[in-house]
Computed example of a mutant assay.
Amino acid sequence: MNAAFQTTPTVSVIVVAADSGPTLRECVRRVMACEVPLELILVDNGSGDGVPQAIERAMQQEWRLRVIYNRANLGFGPAVNRGAAQARGNVLLILNPDCMLDDASLRRLLELLRAHPKAGIIGAVVCDDHGVPDGASYRRDPYLGRALRSLLGKNDGVNIGGDMPAEPVRAEAVSGALMAMPRVVFENLRGFDEAYFLHCEDLDLCRRARDAGYEVWLAGDVHVLHGKGGSSRHRPVFVSWHKHRGMWRWFRKFDPAARNPVTSSVVWLGLWAHFVAKIPGQWLRLLRRGRPALAATDGE
């Protein structure tokens, strides 16, 4: 193996795990099968399932893999920041543990970064097991009016309705399940805002990137399988709690409507009423699955 290849990866793939289960093994396997020079930084947020440790043991001779163990669940953004601090690649690729990357998709993302020098973040179309795109792949800033329209099921809300574009397009925001960006951009933005624990930190990063003069792009011709929060499905109340906290923080930071104290109070009450209203259905689904309602996180 060429020594320069070992010391200068092109891409640093950062995966945050938190009791992510067997999908993490397949995510790691597919990343390591890519031929692009890369390193994989696996950041474990205090998992109790033993999967990160098993992966490290099985790949102890693989210099491209590094595992960072956090003693507690720090949240998604803080864990990514710790992984990025140890990254050596010129490009960071933030990847959910239930997202399945392939070499062709990775090469296309790198090609787009080279083709668009002002690009700060490039996302992909993330799809479910049936190939159906997640609407969160192509988003707008979640201003109050847009968020209300999304809540009412309208197509002109936060997620851009209709078919996904078939080619690269400029976007306001993309899904944090997969984000490629130059490391220098991530460093200039000082990474994720660590006041978010889970959810909306990707919307925040995209907004700050645009405010700093960078472009956000969706690679419409790159489709990646995404399991949609494998470790979150059996801990929905905890995840929902942090999602609503994230929505409140984004609103307070960026939405002009937050300057009005009456509007701000109504939004606060509405958010938490919505959170409480969702709990019975979440618990019912848990009981039907026969799983304990515990708490964990992975990326959005």
Rank of each mutant, 00 (worst) to 15 (best):
A3I: 12
F5H: 00
T7Q: 14
I14S: 03
V15C: 14
D19P: 02
D19Q: 13
S20T: 11
G21N: 12
T23W: 09
C27Y: 11
V28F: 04
V28G: 01
R30Y: 07
V36P: 02
L38F: 00
G46N: 12
V51Y: 01
V51D: 05
P52R: 03
P52V: 03
R57N: 01
R57Q: 09
R57G: 01
Q61L: 10
Q61Y: 08
R64N: 11
R71A: 14
F76H: 14
F76S: 03
V80Y: 06
V80S: 01
V80I: 11
R82E: 13
A85C: 05
A87K: 07
R88N: 05
R88W: 02
G89M: 08
G89H: 08
N90R: 15
L93N: 07
N96M: 04
D98N: 10
C99L: 14
M100Y: 08
M100Q: 05
L101M: 15
D103A: 00
A104D: 15
A104Y: 10
L109S: 03
E111P: 02
L112D: 01
L112F: 03
R114M: 09
A115S: 11
H116L: 01
H116I: 04
P117C: 02
P117D: 09
K118P: 00
A119G: 10
I121C: 08
I122A: 06
D128R: 14
P133L: 06
P133V: 12
P133H: 08
A136R: 13
R139P: 02
P142W: 11
L144P: 00
L144R: 01
R146V: 05
A147I: 00
L148G: 04
N155K: 15
D156F: 09
G157V: 13
G157N: 13
G157P: 14
I160D: 03
I160C: 08
G161Q: 05
G161R: 13
G162L: 07
M164I: 14
M164A: 09
P165C: 10
V169F: 06
V169S: 08
R170N: 09
S175V: 03
S175C: 11
G176M: 13
M179D: 13
M179P: 11
M181R: 04
F186G: 02
N188S: 15
R190K: 10
F192R: 10
E194M: 06
F197I: 14
H199L: 09
D202N: 07
L203M: 14
R207V: 05
R208H: 03
G213Q: 04
V216D: 08
G220R: 05
V224K: 00
G229S: 00
G230Q: 07
S232Y: 02
S232K: 13
H234R: 12
F238T: 04
F238E: 03
K243V: 00
W250R: 10
F251L: 13
R252S: 14
R252A: 14
R259V: 02
N260F: 08
P261A: 08
V262R: 15
V266M: 14
V266L: 15
V267T: 08
W268F: 12
G270V: 07
A273V: 05
F275E: 10
F275Y: 15
K278I: 00
K278D: 07
L284M: 10
L286P: 04
L286Q: 11
L286T: 02
L287C: 06
R289H: 09
P292S: 06
A293M: 07
T297C: 13
G299R: 03
